[in-house]
Design a binder for these strands. Sequence first.
DNA 1: GGCAATGATTAGACAAGGTCTAATTATTAA
DNA 2: TTAATAATTAGACCTTGTCTAATCATTGCC
Lengths: 143, 143
Amino acid sequence: MVKNEYSLSRDNLPEMLRSHGITPTHQRIEIAHVLFSRQEHLSADQILAIVNGRTPETSKATVYNTLNLFLDKKLIREVIVDPSKVFYDPNTKPHHHFYNVDSGELMDIDASGVHISGLPPLPAGMATEGVDVIVRIRSSSAS
Amino acid sequence: MVKNEYSLSRDNLPEMLRSHGITPTHQRIEIAHVLFSRQEHLSADQILAIVNGRTPETSKATVYNTLNLFLDKKLIREVIVDPSKVFYDPNTKPHHHFYNVDSGELMDIDASGVHISGLPPLPAGMATEGVDVIVRIRSSSAS
DNA sequence: GGCAATGATTAGACAAGGTCTAATTATTAA
DNA sequence: TTAATAATTAGACCTTGTCTAATCATTGCC
C-alpha cells in the first residue's frame, strides 16, 4: 500500500531529509511523518495540533520554519484556495484540485490525463513556474 | 474605449448599483468607481488607500462590507493566488490568470479560447461552481 | 417638506494566520 | 569532549479581516 513516494516509516525519514539537504531533527521528523503518513492537505495549525497531540513538543515557530523549509526544498507544495489559510500538500507530483467550497475539502486530480489548450503565449521573458487548476464544486442540491 | 461592461461615469453608477439591488451610497459609489474605472486587480487595503486618497471618507469596515456585498451580488470576483491577501477583480466574464510570483502582478487570460480536457467526473451529487486556472510565471532569467 | 423606521457607516476592539527576535538548546565535526 | 554552528522556543508583534454598539444617512409615507 504505497501511498506516497516516500516511505511512511519514521526510520527512513532521517535519511530522506538528509538526501534533500535537511538536517534531521526530532521536530522535523515528526512534522515530515505527519505529512507523509497521510494523504491529506493540512494547514499549519492542524499540523501543530497533531504534532502536539500527546504532549507539547513543537512550537508554532518551528512548524512554520519547517514547512517553509520543506517548501523550499520541494518536499511539499502549497495549495492556495482558501483566503484564510494555506494548505500544505505532501503530493508533489503534477496534479490539480477539486475544492468543495462548502466544506473546505480538497481532493487531488492527477494531472497526467488533463490537457489545457488555447492558453495565450507567455509575456516576453517569462517562464512558466506551474499551472494550477482549481475546480470549485458544491453540493448540487444546495442553492 | 470601453474597458468594462459598466460605464466608467460616476453618474451612471447609482443606477447600476440599484439595478443589482444595492442602495447607492456615497461610499459604495466611490468604491465602485475605483473598481470599474480601472482594469486592475486590487486588494482591500489598496482600495481603502485610493478611496481615502485626498481626505479620509471611508472606513475599513465599510470597504470590507462593500466588497463582500459586491461579491454577493456578483458585481466583482475574488482572486485567491496570494496567501496573504485577496484580490478583487471587476472583470466577471469567464477568465483565468497569469500570476507573476515575483512581482505579485496579475494578468487576465480570456477564457473563451481556453479548453480543459481530461478532468475526471465530479464526485456524486456535486456541481461545478467554477474552474480557475492560474499560470504561475516568473522571469526566465531569474533562478 | 418633515419624520419615523430602517439600513449604512464608523472607530476601535478583537481574532487568526503568520513572522520576528533574542535567548536557550541541540547537532555536528574534529 | 568541546567549540562552533544550526535549530528551537516563548512570546511579542504585524497584517488581514471581522465584530460591536453607537452614530448617521436614506427612504417611504403622511
